[in-house]
Design a protein around this nucleic acid. Structure first.
Lengths: 167, 167
DNA sequence: GTCGAATAGTACGACATCAAATCATCTCGC
DNA sequence: GCGAGATGATTTGATGTCGTACTATTCGAC
């Protein structure tokens, strides 16, 4: 079993500094959370780029995709969208205003609850998000192709465990 | 080899919806990036809380920690800090203003480059960040205790691979 | 040496987000 | 039924970030 020489990265440099200054600290923990943080910082723009290719600003794709995957009639209420996307309701109001102005979703009265609205994909919104999702997932698959199937499975298992510990 | 029954989580529900609506998509990729996204969304507040316990607002801890781990004399220039923390220089100016007003760092003239400043930890800043780092890493270690050592190692390996693929 | 390009820090305007306050409506215990 | 409390959406005000423009200074090619 040959040891593969791992390339060093920016986080390794950070770990070396901490080891020098504070050898008492748990370097493994710093490394994992450091890599997680940097990854999500880099991942954001990388994923937004695909959405931007379809004319969507950051965050707008997520709203459309949530409606799309909910299935026919592609309708949810703003509160449900906000909760699913872990966004404040105020932020959701803002996003929906833009998406409605762009003609991708529409707000209709909810006959069963007059405090609320039903937010639905328009035909244009459906077509746009369906194409965007295809590109989006292809981009994710491309990024993951750097890992072996075993590494992908292990990553998913570990992330699931962490989510369970925090959530 | 016993199969362990995995609990379902919010991402599993999302995957089931996509499977129903778009069975052609790469569900494994959606799951991994979905969990990564939710994890960093939940992780931010969880880590900020520890810093807040030391009177630091989000992001301020990172600046102090970067200075601390750079070693004596705990001095860097704003551009280096911005690059390390993947922040715009404008954002760094803002953070340094607050940290300087709080007496945790000080800006002194750089004798070698009159365009620039040298940002240094004050004694108070040093003591505060040293205590905060201890708590911060303990918190990270606690979160990671949900994973086995093998899972932690596999997670770090996978994150390193992804970072290399993106960076 | 000198001039053009690159770099350091900051100011400014735009933007997305959140928390709190507000108003309308629903739910449930009585 | 009725009233208190919960819930839904929005508005408002504050905050932190970015991109751009700007000034001062340094670097490098000639």
């Amino acid at each position: 079993m040959a040891e593969k020489t791992q390339q060093t990265d920016a986080v390794d440099e950070i770990l070396a500094q901490w080891h020098r200054e504070r050898p008492d600290l748990d370097l493994a923990a710093i490394g994992i959370f450091g890599r997680l943080g940097r990854l999500s910082l880099l991942l954001g723009p990388a994923l937004d780029e695909v959405a931007a290719g379809h004319g969507l600003r950051p965050g707008e794709f997520d709203v459309l995709a949530t409606l799309r995957r909910s299935g026919p009639p592609y309708t949810l209420i703003p509160s449900a969208l906000a909760q699913t996307l872990m966004l404040s309701r105020a932020g959701m109001t803002n996003r929906l205003d833009r998406l409605e102005a762009a003609g991708l979703v529409e707000r209709t009265l909810d006959p069963a609850d007059r405090r609320s609205f039903r937010v639905s994909l328009t035909d244009r919104g459906y077509e746009l998000v369906d194409a965007a999702v295809t590109d989006h997932v292809a981009n994710e698959t491309r990024l993951l192709s750097a890992l072996t199937p075993e590494e992908r499975a292990a990553l998913d298992r570990a992330l699931r465990g962490l989510l369970h510990a925090i959530g």
